[in-house]
């Protein structure tokens, strides 16, 4: 099978492959067969994933199959709705059809979270530079995605906005770069520092308020096969008006929080235990509290400077 960039495929070919469920997106360690007849989803995909690699042919062996479709025949025509179907039962609530891109992104996340057992997955954003990787753990309202997007502007490459993917053999982090999901106020924050053309149209009225996506960068795709060694684990806490503060965390606490955020740590078992322990031997963990993006960047830069190269 050969690899082409999505933008090299004529629109009618993309449309046909998507309607046949044979658009094979090859991103990081995974191949996903995508299927949809929805024009909104197709347009979002064609735009946001334009530089991504597509496998062309009929004989793909895929990790995941994802269909974004109407929940039933009625909702295909009347008060149209859309839902992600990853091929196994999942209690996803159908959304209005205009939120199709959200279904696509959530569906792709579900595939990785619940069907990938080759790498231990933790709920966190990951960026890196030549020194190594920074893991930004997910916390409700912690500002993981905003901080991840901000660090992308500071010379870091994006491995993932959603998953720290830990290779069980090497205990290095793998890259699975996808558009960065931004919510509400952070949409405008990122539009300012990344440029308005780097952010997708706003999806309004989602269950989480407004959502937009920060575009994938070509450079992150080109380096997606380079793993990174974790050096720093951050547990961010956003608090309006808060003075910036850093507190060193007990590594055992950090480990427990990471394990609790993992959908597959338990499934993988012993290899995941060894890989996590090996990763933790080489890192420091901090809780950082901040009230705005500038403060969070300052804190992270200070901590990163103290880390050995």
């Amino acid at each position: 099978m050969k690899n082409v960039a999505l933008s090299d495929l004529p629109p009618e070919t993309v449309k046909r492959l998507l309607s046949e469920g044979r658009l094979y997106l090859h991103l990081g360690p995974y191949v996903t067969a995508l299927s949809t007849k929805d024009a909104g989803v197709r347009e979002f995909l064609t735009d946001m994933y334009q530089d991504c690699s597509i496998l062309v042919g009929e004989e793909a062996l895929v990790d995941f199959s994802l269909e974004v479709r109407a929940p039933n025949l009625v909702r295909r025509y009347i008060r149209r709705q859309i839902v992600a179907d990853p091929g196994f039962y999942f209690p996803a609530v159908p959304l209005p059809v205009k939120l199709g891109p959200l279904c696509l992104e959530m569906g792709m996340n579900l595939c990785v979270a619940l069907q990938s057992f080759r790498q231990a997955i933790f709920h966190a954003g990951v960026v890196s530079d030549q020194k190594g990787g920074i893991v930004i753990a997910a916390r409700s309202g912690g500002g993981k995605s905003t901080l991840t997007a901000a660090l992308m502007e500071e010379g870091f490459r994006l491995l993932s906005d959603e998953f720290a993917i830990l290779c069980a053999e090497t205990s290095f982090l793998l890259a699975y770069p996808r558009p960065v999901s931004l919510k509400n106020q952070s949409i405008d924050v990122v539009r300012v520092f990344a440029g308005a053309d780097q952010v997708s149209d706003r999806l309004t009225g989602t269950p989480k308020g407004d959502i937009a996506y920060r575009r994938l960068r070509k450079s992150d795709l080109e380096t997606a096969n380079l793993p990174a060694k974790a050096k720093l684990i951050l547990f961010p806490r956003f608090q309006a008006e808060a003075a910036p503060a850093v507190e060193k965390m007990d590594i055992a606490d950090a480990a427990m929080q990471l394990i609790a955020s993992s959908p597959n740590y338990q499934v993988i078992g012993e290899p995941a235990f060894h890989a996590l322990m090996q990763m933790l031997d080489g890192v420091e963990a901090y809780e950082i509290t901040y009230g705005n993006t500038e403060d969070s960047l300052m804190l992270v830069k200070d901590l990163w400077e103290a880390v050995d190269g």
Binding site: F88, P91, V93, H123, P207, A260, S262
Partner: peptide
């Protein structure tokens, strides 16, 4: 899947995110 005993915190988060 309904009775899946995994501590699917991540799944739970996604579910919460898509629930109205």
């Amino acid at each position: 899947y309904l009775r899946m005993p995994l501590p699917l915190l991540m799944a739970h988060l996604f579910r919460k995110a898509i629930r109205r």
